[in-house]
Design a protein around this nucleic acid. Sequence first.
DNA 1: TTTTAAATAATAGTATTACTATCATTGGCA
DNA 2: TGCCAATGATAGTAATACTATTATTTAAAA
Lengths: 228, 228
Amino acid sequence: MNNMNVSSKISLNEGLYLKDPQASELGRKIINHSILMIDELGFEQFTFKKLASEIKSTEATIYRYFKNKHILLIYLVSWYWEWVSFLIKKNTQNTSDAQEKLRIIIHSFVFASKENPSVAYVNESILHNLVISEGMKAYHTKNIDKENSQGFFKNYKDLASLVSEVVTEINPDFAYPYAFATNLFEMSNNHIYFAKHLPKLTDIEIKNDEVGELEVMLNYFADRLLGL
Amino acid sequence: MNNMNVSSKISLNEGLYLKDPQASELGRKIINHSILMIDELGFEQFTFKKLASEIKSTEATIYRYFKNKHILLIYLVSWYWEWVSFLIKKNTQNTSDAQEKLRIIIHSFVFASKENPSVAYVNESILHNLVISEGMKAYHTKNIDKENSQGFFKNYKDLASLVSEVVTEINPDFAYPYAFATNLFEMSNNHIYFAKHLPKLTDIEIKNDEVGELEVMLNYFADRLLGL
DNA sequence: TTTTAAATAATAGTATTACTATCATTGGCA
DNA sequence: TGCCAATGATAGTAATACTATTATTTAAAA
């Protein structure tokens, strides 16, 4: 892809931050290094103190950007969903055939992290890893209903909606287009995780980040579900 | 079901506990109340100290049973998987037709919590809620590979294996029987959660714990995937 | 160029968490 | 009766998840 500034396309709920991290050098450093550190340490071991030390700032300063590390996680995951939505829109804009669109959708998110990144301070490949390993913790919390009512998960919903429309275009009789869409994403991430850590729970293999088998599997599931 | 002692059928990896909680009154209280409290507080807010206070014991004593709360979570989730496996085996033992078996499998776990519980100190219905809300945290951790190598997730793998065999029996050409199985479980739990908390991410509705729509959806997906 | 406001740093402090350690008590069985 | 295993009581520690205060730097307006 060309190096258009995707960040102008990324709109994240303002409730997710206290001070826009994209708008300052330090803020971008927070985004950048929090992705790296959560991926490396895992969400539980990751702390604002460690992050502060890494970027040579202080805990208190990070708290001025994000209310707590859980909201930061939602921010990062939302970023990812928005990034995938952007890719899908970009890659399908010249396609009118719905079946072809679905194929592109699957390809887009399976290979999302391989696309030439356009935001210097976000490593999309590592962000994808993070979403695979820690993403579901963003919405499995006791505050889910309150957070949802504040619109914190809009990006994921929009993505699901986008895909569900294509599903309905392909097969108007398919009864569960939203479930199809979310299942596609959850399944994709789950099986990358399983292939890496719990191989007995899946049939695919992923070596050296080769996700080709995953793409084949998702298309196989999709085709059968939609009667193609 | 009759009140046969299912606990004799439940075999959990000995590495999951330091002292068998099923073998003492206090241990059973730990199981019982940890289920209730994790469901109520969420896993993050749940602590051994709160649990100790609830059962009128001490933190140190609980640490004599479980190494930490994360291992306790794996223990409880393993219990759930083992319980579902048991139900599936029981309910399918008189059925030879594979398609019918799959239908029973789906019915068994969708309605698992409605079966008359046979272990007095485990509320299976609440345990199912816990698995839906917190279950994935049991295997999304930085220690996953070490824990997996110790056999901590055997119960889930066995369950997946059980279902994958039926899938292969129905359609020997289906290329991803394990992915089918795990996806069935993950999807089931996800969509119960979505229906309750993020309804825009699913097509089904669940009011008053009526999971009938979920069963219909899972059968719909299963039939299409297996070409029935 | 100075003034000033905003951002960040430095530092400290608090309640809670996730443990570990030690010693006392109790209740059953040998 | 005595002993031992299980549990209780108590204390302590390092780390976490914050909040508060004051000092310093920086960047932009006057």
